[in-house]
């Protein structure tokens, strides 16, 4: 029996180490870790809770009914309001309160970003060469250059003409 002391010592050391490990682990590993897999389960809820920034065009129509109606009738109906303006959350907060005015971009660059003639665009898409369309190169265009003739919300000129005829 001359070695028993050594066994006890080793035993204590092991148990002590284990308790220490469990203690430290308790503080280092978040409680929800391993709830669904090798990750922190509560992160899912955190990710879901992030607030939505873009509302889509439907979100504008409650307050801007005329514009929305006009927009929906033309070929730009497929273009989101927020593409040309800014995200809804910048303008109206979650509770429907006014935050700040929506920016308006009247530069021709906004239109040309989609309509500048490029070989890599699909051929069926309406594209223009400003030199042909207006006789000016792109850098020479002033703000509002396209809006002089096209309505940004309903750009097709034929439709505009029909509207005037009806009015007249």
């Amino acid at each position: 029996m001359k070695h028993t002391k050594h066994y006890w010592r080793a035993g204590f050391l092991l148990v002590g180490g284990l308790i220490g490990f469990i203690f430290v682990r308790h503080f280092l590993v978040p409680t929800s870790f391993g709830q669904f897999g090798f990750y922190r389960g509560t992160n899912l809820a955190e990710q879901q809770a992030k607030s939505v920034v873009h509302g889509g065009k439907e979100s504008c129509s409650t307050c801007h009914e005329d514009v929305a109606k006009n927009h929906a009738a033309g070929s730009h109906a497929v273009v989101q309001c927020e593409n040309c303006h800014a995200a809804l959350s910048k303008h109206i907060n979650k509770d429907g309160e006014f935050v700040e005015l929506m920016p308006i971009d009247r530069s021709p660059q906004l239109c040309l970003r989609c309509h500048r003639s490029l070989p890599s665009r699909p051929t069926g898409f309406p594209q223009i060469e400003t030199k042909e369309h207006l006789g000016l190169d792109e850098p020479e265009l002033q703000a509002g250059a396209c809006l002089a003739c096209h309505n940004s919300h309903r750009p097709s000129l034929e439709k505009k003409k029909v509207k005037y005829e009806n009015n007249g």
């Binding site: 879901q48 992030k50 939505v52 920034v53 873009h54 497929v78 593409n83």
Partner: peptide, 21 residues
């Protein structure tokens, strides 16, 4: 994240919503 915060609320990801074509 494919806009996890949007799709779990039944919305489309922001990029999909913004695409005009």
């Amino acid at each position: 994240t494919w806009c996890y915060h949007r799709i779990t609320k039944g919305l489309k990801p922001a990029c999909v919503q913004a695409c005009p074509t």
